[in-house]
Design a binder for these strands. Sequence first.
DNA 1: CTGTTAGCGCCTTCAG
DNA 2: CTGAAGGCGCTAACAG
Lengths: 337, 337
Amino acid sequence: MSTIEDVAKLTGLSRTTVSRVINNHPYVSEDKRKLVIEAMNKLGYVPNSSARSLRNQKTDVIALFVPRITNPFFSQLVESTEIAAADHGYQLIICQTRYSPEKELNYMNLLKTKQVDGVILASLQNDWEKIEPFLDYGPIVLCNEFEDRANVPTVKLDQVYGGYIATKHLIEQGHTKIAYCCGGYRSNVAKSREIGFRQALSEHKLSFDERYAFRDAFNIADGKRVFQKMITLPDPPTAVFTGSDEVAAGILSEARKHGYRVPEDLAIVGFDNQAITELMDPMITTVHQPVKEMAQKAVDIIVEKIQSRKYRKKEIYEFPLQLIVRESTVSKKLAKA
Amino acid sequence: MSTIEDVAKLTGLSRTTVSRVINNHPYVSEDKRKLVIEAMNKLGYVPNSSARSLRNQKTDVIALFVPRITNPFFSQLVESTEIAAADHGYQLIICQTRYSPEKELNYMNLLKTKQVDGVILASLQNDWEKIEPFLDYGPIVLCNEFEDRANVPTVKLDQVYGGYIATKHLIEQGHTKIAYCCGGYRSNVAKSREIGFRQALSEHKLSFDERYAFRDAFNIADGKRVFQKMITLPDPPTAVFTGSDEVAAGILSEARKHGYRVPEDLAIVGFDNQAITELMDPMITTVHQPVKEMAQKAVDIIVEKIQSRKYRKKEIYEFPLQLIVRESTVSKKLAKA
DNA sequence: CTGTTAGCGCCTTCAG
DNA sequence: CTGAAGGCGCTAACAG
């Protein structure tokens, strides 16, 4: 466990000079530089990062908050964020809030204790007022999730539009009884999709039926459960808009089990364009989200904020969403015609 | 950004006493303790973690190496590891090697620079000889992946048995032409499964047919590709053993597209027991891996090693695997009978 | 171009 | 029960 001092001694130079070599400073003669590098190799010397962090007041680590990493949307986000962060020389700490405000707040202390240089929030469990004070300690960037009151950079997708195009597509297939099936009461992502959903409805003189609304569907099991409930309804819907491909797949699988034909008896549209959509039979119509671009942008921004040290400015970066029509909404014969 | 000094001044006490309060030391009078806590709250004081790390020679961070986090097996592993780590008061840094030995080696420097207290390797891209020297700097635990020459704790699953039971099951369904379709030439996980595969074969007087072997299948697209190749074979297999549910799903989906009936024309067995196996039609027979238990154990061990400072002892912890029979290997009528 | 010096914020002997 | 002082390893003035 050699230190800079050891290298200095071995070369007969000062710690300063060694430090200069480490940090690629100019004004070091070529021969001394070589001498130092040689000594570092001989000793297997590597700078201690805690010492550097303490001295430089930065850790080169950022934290990414997600509810659960096993949600494929978020694992994609984590993957892309990790790659983008590594490109900038940053390590990534994963914080799974598991939808708990307490856990989220607790992880926020990473910023206060200076264990990370910045935080990317891909989900938000607390009121913004609880989060805002942490801006005293470092930058926060919202990525995916968003919040009107948040005075920070936000990288998001146009979820209203996403809800809109998916629903409009369903309406254009002739459906009038369309269920709404999303997850998260407090999430603005879900709220926006609902706005888009309602917008498409009202544009076509259809009204929102609260009996068709399910707002607690996150995963496959939820999808199955929702299907069960739906079919017990007096006048069941003929189509369903969902907030994730997992939910859509759950509904689809349960529908199949009950002998329902998709899309003839029930049309289903998913969200995220996960791999599963192309695996299911029928393949699931969905909304593609440019996760990679969003993650990349979020990292670019937080890196920039870490340097500029201006944290409290609201800037919105919005990426477009795209409907991908497959078989779960359009009967195969028609689609192939 | 207050420091311990600020708290000391505000209370009129010394830094030492404040430090004692922070670290729950005994021998601090109750009133002074309260005084300090009050002052900390007033100032919003939180200890600086870089300074603590430097002083204490530990970071309370561990690194987890995975090839890619979007592989559902690994995202499950990450999820469980993060939770277990948090329970022990550790943060988790994610290192995606993307199957690159260089990236892996590069991330290993986290140990050398003392940015992390320990490393959990869930995959291994380098020869052990390249990894071993890092044991000078901290503990390494193998989790999932393993290696004979590795002189470190290893938490693994009985992959030989996994390959064996899956293959045996296929044979018992009457198959004699069984394809082997796994990922990773260097991975001992894959190698072990092949051993189990061959073992089942030879126990039933069947021989391994190299034409039926595909060792570069990792994901859905690979599965599709493999199916295409398989059906062009002169005497194509009637069953296929795969190393992951994604590959199995890819094969299944492609088979369906080509009008093959599963399991009648082609029986398929997956690996991992991912959610997708119950979503596909037919549902996929697979091998369940107790990921959560494995992750939990790996964290327990690395935490213990960090404390004990003995890194170079080989210990094997093996968890059992379990065959889960579904529809992709047993025709529905029979299964329901 | 190189070295001396003073901390970054914290904890831990060692003395009271 | 409390405090003074040194140092973890590194870098950035400030002098030469």
